[in-house]
Design a binder for these strands. Structure first.
Lengths: 347, 347
DNA sequence: CTTAGTTGGGAAAAGGTTTTCTCACATCGA
DNA sequence: TCGATGTGAGAAAACCTTTTCCCAACTAAG
């Protein structure tokens, strides 16, 4: 049987620093110093070693470096967000902030399973991650793992288990203000708020901001409609708001894009034009939803990637030994204006 | 200034094998063997060392182990799927398959940027990942990185750069068959197919299967409608199919759930009932979309998690030195029946 | 010519674990 | 009592890199 009958691939051995040193006729110590711009030697020697390393395709073994430096250039991202609606943009930001520092990210989805969470955390700890970023779908619920007594820095994004932790969250109240104030600027007077269930902390935070902006602008207060984060609740809300007697809203600020979508569809089915008769603004700026509504949805973007970047950078500096003051940092949202909210009339 | 004025946390030093050995009054060699069930010693000694390790909370340093074993218990997942629509379920499957083996997964989103791809791949290589799984949004496009001459095993999921590679993809033709055959069983005779652009390989593969099933069942052939993967194309398609003259379809098999959503909305706007007048089946089984359509959408599920599990397991066995025959492995889809496709009439 | 200082480069330890050898001691049969 | 066998446990090498000394050779000053 010929040897090439075997489909098993042969992987060549990685070239080590010793190989480079031998090839260049110096000791490993010198080779190391040459490549790290340390120590003293003739530029000639240094250059020769560099060339040799280059030629041999030498890449230092991170494992050995990590062992020595007690730093693995690795962080873990813990999430329970199965579909990655929030965690992926966050991840993108983190990754973006860290890749230039040579740091890679372990992603662990722990669902709601404490056993799984424990397993993943231990695996990461054993691999000596430099730090952990924990994220969740909502600020007022925590991952099913205890990260409080780890020997490494932990940063929270979108959740904050205790006030002594360092946490980054979006400024939901500010985001709500952006939306409602935008409606005010557009001259809408009766502004409704349709949002998720009262069990979510953000629901109250945003509703509070909504009421505040109405008050500041001398507009009629309307009680926020709490329900579920679904399209179908958007439909129900429209039925509730428009099918009864009394004055109808001119604008609806929705708690997420799915609700907004349901609202827009419900309005259209009633022959109401968006934004002509009613303006709609959503929350989350979930592109795939926001761009599919008719008309495309104006929505509050939580800047998750930026949040991830901040979290990543902060973790890095924490790992580097710089202290960080504990507490929540709120990062501003931004309003992404499309066509569902109406436009300022010129003149 | 009191020392507790400083917010810098103090992280205790990890306990090493040497600590355990010293504490138990043995050598590190013995300690190692005790904990790994190797070597010879009295059960008494072994037990005592175990207890000591337990008491001290010893966890072996993975870095040191990896260095020695030339195996990092780490794999990389490379993707360009920003929103994680495909890569996250895949990731979940991979992670699920590997976590019990103590393997963690680096997730790297390289977008379409070759520089970024290169950066990530090098970072992973330096960290001595045991293998890499590369995935993409579509089988006929590849990531902007060259993985062909790595010293570690590579597995592809959803893409296959060359026939010598090991790749896992979903059986799109089979999935299409499932959908169309389901319509046939339900007695629908005029079955249309609305799908994405011709630049996608899967579009042709599924269209082929669609035609084949029609032929096998002696049903009238209809030319598939190719467009974009969007809701708005779904609307257009409905206009095209129903607003002209000629016989109308009784069923529509859509290339993805977004198209299906557009189709369903378009049908409703025309006063056609789903599934009463027209049955609709989508593709991807994107839960958040499929459950929000009215009625909920029957859809072909590509079993991405299962695919990820297979890929992970295969990579593991490849890493373990077992050869794997190159080529594409197609994994079956499954039909998730909800309410949009109609039901078999009893009696 | 001696001494102090500089320069280029190497030896060795460290990081934490695993594994192979080796060794001392005990036991057993002759 | 002597060799053979077996048993429990330790010493040391290995994995790969970094860093701290250290040393030899050379230069310059006195």
């Amino acid at each position: 049987m010929a040897s090439n009958d075997q489909p098993v691939p042969v992987f060549s051995k990685p070239v080590t620093l010793r190989d480079v040193a031998t090839e260049a006729g110096v000791s490993v110590a010198t080779a190391s110093k040459a490549l790290n711009d340390q120590g003293r030697m003739t530029t000639e020697t240094r250059e020769r070693i560099r060339q040799t390393a280059q030629r041999l395709g030498f890449r230092p073994n991170s494992l050995a470096q990590s062992l020595l430096r007690r730093r693995s250039f690795t962080v873990g991202l813990l999430t329970n967000d199965t579909y990655g609606r929030f965690s992926l943009p966050l991840m993108a930001g983190i990754s973006d902030a860290l890749v230039d520092a040579g740091v890679s990210v372990f992603l662990c989805n722990v669902e709601e399973d404490p056993r799984l969470g424990q397993l993943h955390v231990e695996a990461m700890l054993d691999k000596r991650v430099d730090g952990i970023i924990a994220t969740g779908k909502r600020i007022d619920r925590h991952l099913p793992v205890d990260l409080s007594n780890l020997r490494i820095p932990v940063i929270y994004a979108f959740t904050q288990p205790d006030p002594d932790a360092v946490a980054f969250v979006s400024d939901d109240a500010g985001g709500a203000r952006l939306a409602v104030e935008h409606f005010c600027r557009l001259g809408r007077r009766r502004i409704a708020h349709v949002t998720g269930p009262s069990t979510f902390a953000v629901v109250h935070e945003r509703a509070e901001a909504y009421r505040a902006v109405l008050a500041e602008n001398g507009l009629p207060a309307m009680e926020p409609l709490l329900g579920s984060w679904t399209e179908s609740f958007g439909h129900q809300a429209v039925a509730h708001l428009f099918d009864g007697a009394g004055e109808k809203p001119e604008a609806i600020f929705c708690g997420n894009d799915q609700i907004a979508r349901g609202v827009i569809d419900g309005l259209r089915e009633r022959g109401l034009s968006v934004p002509g008769d009613v303006g709609v603004i959503g929350f989350d700026n979930w592109q795939i939803v926001a761009e599919a509504t008719r008309p495309p949805l104006t929505s509050v973007d939580m800047n998750l990637a930026a949040l991830g970047r901040e979290a990543g950078l902060t973790l890095l500096s924490l790992v580097g030994g710089k202290p960080a003051v504990p507490g929540i940092r709120k990062l501003p949202c931004r309003l992404v204006v499309r066509q569902s909210c109406g436009r300022l009339q010129d003149g």
